[in-house]
Design a protein around this nucleic acid. Structure first.
Ligand SMILES: [Mn+2]
Ligand SMILES: [Mn+2]
Ligand SMILES: [Zn+2]
Ligand SMILES: [Zn+2]
Lengths: 147, 147
DNA sequence: TTATTTATTTATAATCGTTATAAATAGTTT
DNA sequence: AAACTATTTATAACGATTATAAATAAATAA
């Protein structure tokens, strides 16, 4: 499953003339297998045993390459470090305000919001960003136990 | 109109034991009268003729105070500087990807998204963030003229 | 009013995520 | 193998924001 995802991603890179280096391979592999939303530093730390000399700039450079190839989506959070999401399908995120956990969920059609926004502002609309914030089950349980 | 907004804001601060300093007054006044979404630095620059010795830290400190009092909302944009919005009503933003302009728009009830997200993830939901991205009429016109 | 206490401001240094730069290295083509 | 080019590495720089500590101003008490 994740093997085909990796192969497909490598193909996408090859066809756009991007060289497959060991570092690139490892970063992609990590993004796909963890199924999470790591920061650049998470990736850097996870791979340092395999690539003791890898620079953090290499991680950032390659995440940019992946983003530009449409393989990866960058999730920005103000002050905090960006998180990177290996893109499979269109989906939204719900974020735990207590522990920072990010969980995917699907929701169809917010086209209506885009249309209304375009109509009332005169903008030409390209995209939208939606996130839901709350408390994850784990953190919720911890909170109730303390009471 | 904006005068009553200012008075109400000052009242809110007073009742929570926050001192009304000339700097605070000026920052609040600026936020209310500009009707825009300035960065901390925008505010700092706009007030430097009135307060030549004001520190940029003062702007940040007070924006934090205002945020904690619920007077101001902070809009974060990854790498770029936060923008600050004097809160009057619940509303969303549409952002021009060409010039950065931020325009308010209203949209009722995305409660359904919150409910679905809560249901499928098990999270306890607090809030959500929605933004629409596109090109503003001015930038769109400039773009078509160039063709 | 004056003294005392406390909040706030100022000036400046530090932090942190990210990017820029330039030299070194590795991959690709001739 | 030689030449060319992309990529990596090491390191410095950047920009927004925060931390710190001394100076100042506001509020309260005497
Ligand atoms: Mn995701
Ligand atoms: Mn607004
Ligand atoms: Zn949590
Ligand atoms: Zn524009």
């Amino acid at each position: 499953m994740s093997d085909t995802q990796l192969k497909s991603a490598l193909d996408t890179l090859k066809t756009t003339g991007v060289r497959i280096t060991p570092q690139r391979h490892a970063i992609l592999e990590y993004l796909i297998e963890t199924m999470s939303h790591p920061t650049a530093d998470d990736i850097y730390k996870a791979l340092e045993h395999k690539f003791p000399n890898m620079s953090v700039a290499t991680v950032y450079n390659n995440l940019r390459v992946f983003r530009e190839s449409g393989l990866v989506r960058e999730l920005t959070y103000g002050d905090n470090a960006s998180r990177f999401d290996f893109v499979t399908t269109k989906h939204y995120h719900i974020i735990c305000e207590s522990c920072g956990k990010i969980v995917d969920f699907h929701y169809p059609g917010l086209d209506e919001v885009e249309h209304l926004a375009a109509h009332v502002t005169g903008f030409k609309v390209n995209s939208h960003r939606l996130e839901v914030y709350g408390t994850c089950p784990d953190c919720e349980e911890k909170a109730t136990k303390l009471q």
